[in-house]
C-alpha cells in the first residue's frame, strides 16, 4: 500500500498547489469550509482534514456561490457580449467526504443531463480531481448510509485517502486522473502494509425506502402545517446543503458595460417564485417548506431515480429552529 505520514501533508499540498487550485478543509475563524490552499495562513487557519464535515460543502468548487457568466458592452442601441467566463482552471478537492462526493454525482445529473449541458459547470467539473477521505467513524448527525452512500468507498473519487492511524493515511489511486496526480507527489509517499479501521456504527438511521412513492398521496396532508410551523425560511439549509443547486441569474451594470452572473438562490424565499405581475404560486412559508422537502424526497427521485439528500447532516445541525429532514422522513413513514 502507498501511504503518507501526516507530517508530510503540507508538503503534498505545496506540491499539488504548483499546478492546480487545491481546496482543503480548513477552519477559518468561525467558518469551516474547503478553501484554496494558496490562501492558507497558519496564523489564522487550521487544516482540518480529520473534520468529518466542514460547514460549507465543497460544491462551491464546481458550482461557486457567485459566478460571472459573461460581460457585455453597449453603445447607443448596440450591445456586444465581449467575454464568456468559462473557467477551466485545474482544481483538486482534497479530503472530500463520500456524502459530498455523492452530492457531486447528483449535481452532475442536474447540470449535465436532461437535454442541456450547463457549460459553466461542465468546464469546472471536467477539470476537477477528487481526492476523497474515507469515513470510519460516523458523526452524531451523519446518516449517509441510510441515503445509499458508502462512507468508506466514496464513488467518483480519483484517489481515496484512508486514515489508518494517527500516523498517516493510505493513498489509494482509483483512476487515471488520480495516477497523474500521484506522479507529482510520489516521492512523498512510501510503501507500507497497514491495518485499516472498521466502519463504526451510525447513531442515526432512517428508512427512506418507499418514501418517494408514499409522498405522491401526501401533498395535502395536514402534517405539512405542523412540520413547517417552526421554519423561519432563513434558507441556511439550502446554502449549506451539498446538493441544493438552485440559482438566480442577475446583472451588474455600470455606465456602458457590465456582466451577468449567477448566484445561489433558495427555494425558501418568496422572491424565488414571485412573478412580475404579482402572482406567486408558493406564497406561504408552508408551501415553500413543503416544496423543498418534496423536491428532495419525491420530485428529484421521480426525475433522476434518487433522493436529493446524501445524509451529510449539515441542515440538521445548522437549522436554528430544529427542523430535521430525518424526523420529516420518519413522519412521512408514519403518516
Amino acid at each position: 500500500m502507498k501511504v503518507f505520514k501526516k507530517g508530510r501533508l503540507e508538503k503534498i499540498l505545496d506540491k499539488l498547489s504548483e499546478s492546480a487550485e487545491v481546496y482543503v478543509p480548513m477552519m477559518r475563524g468561525a467558518q469551516s469550509g474547503f478553501f484554496d490552499y494558496k490562501t492558507y495562513n497558519p496564523d489564522f487557519d487550521e487544516l482540518v482534514l480529520e473534520a468529518l464535515n466542514v460547514l460549507r460543502p465543497p460544491k462551491e468548487v464546481v458550482f461557486p456561490q457567485t459566478e460571472k457568466m459573461y460581460s457585455f458592452k453597449q453603445e447607443g442601441q448596440d450591445v456586444i457580449i465581449d467575454k464568456v467566463y468559462e473557467d477551466e482552471n485545474p482544481r483538486i478537492i482534497f479530503g472530500i467526504r463520500a456524502c459530498d462526493l455523492k452530492a457531486i454525482e447528483y449535481l452532475d445529473e442536474v447540470f449535465l443531463t436532461c437535454g442541456y449541458e450547463d457549460a459553466f459547470y461542465k468546464k469546472r467539473r471536467e477539470n476537477t480531481v477528487f481526492i476523497a477521505n474515507a469515513c470510519y467513524t460516523p458523526g452524531k448527525n451523519c446518516f449517509c448510509e441510510s441515503m445509499g452512500v458508502n462512507p468508506v468507498e466514496p464513488e467518483l473519487a480519483d484517489i481515496v485517502l484512508r486514515e489508518y492511524s494517527d500516523e498517516g493515511y493510505v493513498w489509494e489511486v482509483k483512476t487515471e486522473k488520480g495516477e497523474n496526480i500521484t506522479r507529482l507527489i510520489s516521492d512523498l509517499l512510501e510503501d507500507k502494509e497497514v491495518q485499516l479501521p472498521e466502519l463504526k456504527k451510525f447513531v442515526i438511521k432512517v428508512d427512506y425506502d418507499g418514501v418517494a412513492e408514499k409522498l405522491k398521496g401526501l401533498f395535502e396532508h395536514p402534517m405539512w402545517d405542523r412540520l413547517s410551523e417552526p421554519c423561519q425560511t432563513c434558507g441556511i439549509c439550502t446554502y449549506i446543503c451539498p446538493t441544493c443547486h438552485c440559482f438566480d441569474i442577475q446583472v451588474k451594470a455600470w455606465g456602458d458595460e457590465g456582466y451577468r452572473f449567477r448566484c445561489w438562490d433558495s427555494c425558501m424565499y418568496r422572491e424565488y417564485t414571485q412573478m412580475a405581475g404579482g402572482h406567486n404560486p408558493r406564497e406561504t412559508a408552508k408551501e415553500r417548506f413543503r416544496n423543498r422537502f418534496l423536491h428532495k424526497l419525491e420530485f428529484f427521485y421521480e426525475r433522476y431515480g434518487k433522493p436529493l439528500c446524501t445524509g451529510c447532516g449539515r441542515c440538521v445541525f445548522v437549522c436554528p429552529s430544529g427542523v430535521s429532514i430525518v424526523k420529516i422522513i420518519e413522519e412521512i413513514k408514519g403518516a
Binding site: 437535454g115 450547463d118 438552485c246 440559482f247 438562490d265 417564485t273 414571485q274 412573478m275 416544496n291 419525491e298
Partner: peptide, 17 residues
Amino acid sequence: MRMKCGIGKCGRCNIGS
C-alpha cells in the same frame, strides 16, 4: 412560472417534478 435558466437547472419553475 418565474424562470431564470430556461434549461431545467435553476430550480424555480417546478410544479411537482
